[in-house]
Write a protein that binds this DNA or RNA. Structure first.
Length: 488
RNA sequence: GGUUCGUUGGCCGAGUGGCUAGGCACCGGUCUGCAAAACCGAUUACGGCGGUUCGAAUCCGCCACGAACCUCCA
């Protein structure tokens, strides 16, 4: 595989050259959503970030197996010993079957991902469908001696693990500090240490989601599903594991420990983490109550939004920042993205109609290499976009007749735009979809042709009337040199 | 308190030692019956104080401010 892709590995905190474990195959696991509520802007970030990784690896010629899980067993909501399963809680509130809640939100999540043009993962396993695998994983860790049973529950022995391996290497923590800082949370727990975490929890009677296991009727611990499902579908060692930065500790740290303890080896070669979306400099999140659902963006129905925003605008907005930076949401920032995207996509459409000359006066070659270089540098989509805007200027100049482009260069330019805009960045035009059916389109064209005639007869009263009325109905009328354009 | 990471022009956001992204807004211009749209062009920056260097937004040190994680969180 001829490429020079470097990705930032959280483990080493450095950009490392991407070399897959198995020549032309890549295994990638990404932490998906917990389905007890609608997806908000924050959920779009990892989905889009790793969609880009998925698309780019495929573009490079790899056969990628992309696994993104659905967490439907539920992490505990409060402290380990008194908590209630999120899904179960929601189910009780809504008087629904737990799996009914799960199905409802899974469907809605899929719909949101689809309009964001996020490709389907290769496998989307649900935690509830992999209880056996998780029980087996617990057994492996017990057999290896890194877990202990206590009152029907099984806990991971962090201190023992740390003596042999190194607990905290992903997040840069050390166990002494953690023992100090979390001591006070420890009551008369079944756990030996506050930093130990549950692999299997015995269900209390009010728990509605529970399964039979050798230790008790209960449910698997918070971090286990990713260890079990990741290794089931990608093998004991695989290339990439992704997720949000907020999952780095404890979730991914525990996952590393579980795999090393249970399998005797590190499973993941490259750990990738996308940064958070902030709002007024603060993380957008459920607990802070400052999140905006994706649905609300698409409908504009939220007090912080001045208008609705299309899925592509949301996607473009996210891609305009590097995935490891925070990106600050505001309605005006999205408006800026919306305008930029629309100009870019109109230029892309214009490119298809461009006429070539015998020679080029604009510089177009090198664009592909520059865009590839940006992608190879830890998937720097904002830089790719900036190059596309540079090329857009050239396109417009040619369109205006101020510059020329040769047939060869034109073919190449079209190809580069298609590759990067559609295939890699996953942006698509939203114009065509909203244009409606043929009869309706023809009717509007008829009206505007009548207006054109009126204009030619200098009948400004008629021409303005048509324009103003259509505008009032919600149409946008644009006059061009020799005709008109419209959209709604 | 510990760990990790930030602070870039009016706003959003790239950039890791010299060539000083990009988008949006603003301003000037082209086009237009008018308007809108579109297009072209120009301007504005690197939290503070020291240091290293011929040269620093970029490296080092200190300070200030902010954020994430340490409980579930994308």
């Amino acid at each position: 595989m001829e490429h020079n892709l470097y990705i930032y590995n959280t483990l080493s905190r450095k950009k490392e050259q991407f070399v897959p474990l198995h020549d032309n195959k890549v295994g990638m696991y990404v932490c998906g959503p917990t389905v007890y509520g609608d997806a908000h802007l924050g959920h779009a970030r990892p989905a889009i970030t790793f969609d880009i990784v998925f698309r780019y690896l495929k573009q490079l010629g790899y056969k990628v197996r992309y696994v993104r899980n659905i967490t439907d067993v539920g992490h505990l909501e409060n402290d380990a010993d008194s908590g209630e399963d999120k899904i179960a809680k929601k189910a009780r509130l809504d008087e629904l079957e737990p799996m009914e809640v799960v199905q409802y939100y899974v469907n809605r999540y899929h719909k949101a991902m689809e309009v964001l043009n996020v490709l389907h993962p290769s496998i989307e396993p649900q935690a509830s469908g992999h209880i056996m695998e998780q029980i087996e994983f617990v057994q492996k860790i017990l057999d290896a001696g890194f877990a202990y049973e206590s009152a029907g529950s099984v806990y991971f022995d962090v201190e023992k693990y740390d003596k042999k391996y190194n607990y905290g290497k992903l997040s840069g923590r050390n166990i002494e500090d953690m023992l100090e800082s979390t001591r006070d949370l420890d009551g008369q727990s079944e756990k030996r240490r506050s930093i130990d975490f549950a692999l299997w929890k015995k269900a209390s009677p009010e728990h509605i989601m529970h399964w039979k296991a050798p230790w008790s009727e209960g449910f698997p611990g918070w971090h286990l599903e990713c260890s079990a499902m990741g290794t089931k579908y990608l093998g004991e060692e695989f290339d990439i594991h992704g997720g949000g930065m907020d999952l780095m500790f404890p979730h991914h740290e525990c996952e590393i420990a579980q795999n090393k303890a249970g399998l005797g080896k590190d499973s993941v070669k490259y750990w990738m983490h996308n940064n958070m979306i902030t709002i007024g400099g603060q993380k957008m999140g459920k607990s802070l109550g400052n999140f905006i659902n994706l649905e609300e963006f698409f409908s504009g129905n939220h007090k912080l939004l001045t208008q609705s925003f299309s899925p592509m605008t949301v996607r473009f907005f996210i891609l305009q920042a590097h995935y490891r930076s925070t990106v600050d949401f505001s309605s005006s920032a999205l408006e800026a993205s919306e305008k930029g995207l629309s100009r870019l996509m109109e230029g892309y459409a214009r490119l298809q109609k461009l006429l070539s000359s015998t020679t080029s006066s604009v510089e177009t070659f090198g664009l592909r290499a520059k865009c590839e270089e940006a992608m190879n540098d830890d998937l720097n989509t904002p830089i790719v976009i900036s190059y596309l805007f540079d090329a857009l200027r050239a396109i417009n100049l040619v369109h205006d007749g101020k510059e020329t482009i040769s047939a060869t260069d034109l073919v190449e330019l079209k190809s580069v735009f298609t590759t990067f805009i559609e295939e890699i960045l996953g942006l698509k035009s939203e114009m065509e979809a909203s244009a409606g059916n043929e009869a309706y389109t023809k009717a509007i064209d008829l009206l505007l042709n009548m207006r054109l005639e009126a204009k030619q007869n200098k009948d400004w009263a008629t021409s303005d009337k048509i324009r103003n009325e259509l505008t009032a109905f919600g149409f946008e009328i644009k006059d061009t040199k020799d005709g008109f354009e419209w959209n709604i």
